[in-house]
Structure formats: structure tokens, C-alpha cells
Nucleic acid binder design. Structure first.
Lengths: 178, 178
DNA sequence: GGGCCCATGTAAGAGGTTACATGATTAA
DNA sequence: TTAATCATGTAACCTCTTACATGGGCCC
């Protein structure tokens, strides 16, 4: 149940409405923990019911601003330090690799070249983000940079791997259908 | 809907029962696309209903052996070559990094050291698998090696990143609570 | 006979996606 | 006045997890 903790984490920075959270997810967490509008409003209700957040202000158009409570803050810290991150990652990109023997080597190479290109593009996008975010020594900047650095290293690794893999397939004897 | 394609991919190697598939998922796909017993049996029924697989033999204890059909094979190849892999990855490990500013720097460092250790352990496990799988030049060996190589590079990258990140936090001014 | 593995299935519930539905406020 | 944005909520559906439920066959 990481959605609730993602929301608590954002609310730890200050009060926000469901609409605000939606924007925050889009700009800062979309690559790590995407969330939809319907999820956010439903979960906000549950968080309020369990006392981890509370409504602190109401604005125009029915706007409700929520703030994290002490219990919410405790739950967030507990989740960060005491709950084991989920190691299992599902990757349909990698799943296809397992079955590349069912297509022609040409198609397999094309597939891996596409992955290399996608990784390169992703890397490029992250370098731009890296340039934008501040070089400050405050905690927020440091942790933000650490997260972006993960993405940079991941996309670089994936590009290199895919390019290496294309070479490997070149070693395969030409006619390898089925 | 990658589960069905994972199952088709395994059945492309030869007929198997639900029970067989469960074992195959456990030994070969657990790190890429885990599946549970209840999922497999339910999906086998749906695959048979849509004609992508069919029962080819019945054995003791109600065992039903399924084989992929021509339509199933076509669907598998279509999925591999024409369907864009899902780029969005959820990572609660990385999500926590975004919120490390809410805990003490000591705890943040500990968290990242734990991630480095977990990655190192994962890398070690994969090197053993790498040693076991054949060095053959046939398609199955080559693609298997490519998939394992991804895991090796990923876990190496993650270990290096986490160790680098610990150093970054050391640059933070000591008292940075809240 | 008893324990282990083989073998299949169902049900409840959590989490997530997509679509539907509605309306207020603001700025050009 | 009208289009964009702010703002909240519900419903249907899919996927995945966990637990329940049952029983046959094999080997010691």
C-alpha cells in the first residue's frame, strides 16, 4: 500500500488538496509511483477516516485542503525505516526477451535497438531535469538529486545492455526461426 | 495483460499443465513476471476459451496438458514485435528516497546501505545462475544469457548508486530533522 | 498407512485504470 | 460569454494476492 505513503510524503511538505496532490504526482512522482485522480480522492477519504490526515481548510469550489497529522507522520517514518521495500519488479520489456527465440533474429535485434533508443531518450529527458533542479546542499535538493541519479544510471545501463545484446544476437547462426 | 503472453511464451516451448506452468514461472520467470497458482488456472481457462491454447492430453489426478495453437503463436509474436513495452515502473524503494528528508540523515544512510547490500546479494545470486546456464550458441541460451545479463547490470548499478548516495548524504549539514 | 507431492479449482478483497458525471471560478 | 482550469466525486472493470477447499497418486 505505497500510494498512501506517497501521499503522506507529499503532505509532509505542507498541506494540499486532492487536486494539488494530483499535480504533484504528475510533476514529481509520475516515474516512480503514478496515481490517478480517482485513486487520490478515494485514498484521501480513507486517510482522513484513519486519522493520518485531516482537513485543515476549505476553499472555493468545494476545495478541501488536507494536512498530515502526527500519526500520519509517524506512519510515514515507520514505512520508510521499518518496512522492507518490495524487491519484485515486473518487466514486460524483459519478459519479451525471454521469448525472443520465437521471432526472427532480425526482429529480435530490432526489438533491442528500440529499447536502446527508448533508454537513450529517457536519459536525455533526465539530464534536462538534472540541469533544472537546484544544486543546493539542503536535504530536499540532495534527495531529489539522488533519485534523478538513479534514473540516469538506470537508463544508461539499459541502453548499454540493449546495444550489447544486439551484438550477442549477431553471433547467432542465421536461420533460427521458431 | 502480460500474464497471458508469459504463459503463451512458456507453452511455445512445448505442452504443459497448469501445475507445470506454475513450476516454470517459479524457476524461470519469478524475477520478471511472478504469477500465482490461482492466476494461472484462471488464465488457462480464458486462453482455452479464446482458442489461443487447447487441451492436448489428460493425465492422472485430473491433469490437463495444454498446447499453444497457431492463433496463440501469432498472438505471442504480435505482442513481442508490435506492442510497446510498458515503460512505467513503480518502485517503492525509490519512492522512499523522495521522502528521506523526513527521517534523520543517519536513518537515510542506513536505508541506502541496506539497498546496497540487497543489490549485492541479488548480484551474487545471479552470478551463480550465470555460471549454471549453458554457454551455448543456440537461441535459447543466448536470450537466456541476455536476460540474466540485464539483472547483473541492474544489480551492479543499484549497488554503486546506493553507495554513491550514502556519500552524498555525508555532505549534508548534520542536524536535518523534519 | 501416512506423508509428500501432484493437481485443480473458487472466493474475497486490495489496488489500479478508465470512464462517467457534475459544477464553480477565473481570465481573456 | 466562453473556454480553460479548478475541484470533487462515483462506477465498472481488470489484475493480482491470499486464503480456502478438495482430492488423487506415489513411495516408504
Amino acid at each position: 500500500m505505497s500510494l498512501r505513503h506517497a501521499m503522506l510524503g507529499l503532505l509532509a511538505r505542507g498541506p494540499a488538496s486532492g487536486y494539488d496532490l494530483l499535480k504533484l504526482f504528475e510533476i514529481s512522482l509520475s516515474n516512480v509511483w503514478p496515481a490517478t485522480q480517482s485513486q487520490l480522492y478515494a485514498e484521501l477519504g480513507r486517510l482522513a477516516d484513519t486519522g493520518l490526515v485531516k482537513v485543515v481548510a476549505e476553499g472555493p469550489r468545494g476545495r478541501k485542503e488536507y494536512a498530515i497529522t502526527d500519526e500520519g507522520m509517524a506512519e510515514l517514518r515507520h514505512w520508510i525505516t521499518d518496512v522492507e521495500p518490495n524487491r519484485s519488479r515486473r518487466s514486460d520489456m524483459l519478459l519479451r526477451v525471454f521469448f525472443l527465440n520465437t521471432v526472427e533474429p532480425d526482429q529480435a535485434r530490432q526489438y533491442l535497438r528500440d529499447q536502446a533508443a527508448a533508454a537513450a531518450k529517457q536519459h536525455e529527458g533526465l539530464t534536462k531535469i538534472r540541469e533544472i533542479i537546484a544544486d543546493g546542499q539542503d536535504a530536499l535538493s540532495v534527495y531529489g538529486r539522488i533519485a534523478v541519479e538513479w534514473g540516469l544510471r538506470f537508463s544508461a545501463m539499459q541502453r548499454e545492455w540493449a546495444e550489447w545484446a544486439v551484438e550477442e544476437i549477431d553471433q547467432l547462426p542465421s536461420p533460427t526461426p521458431e
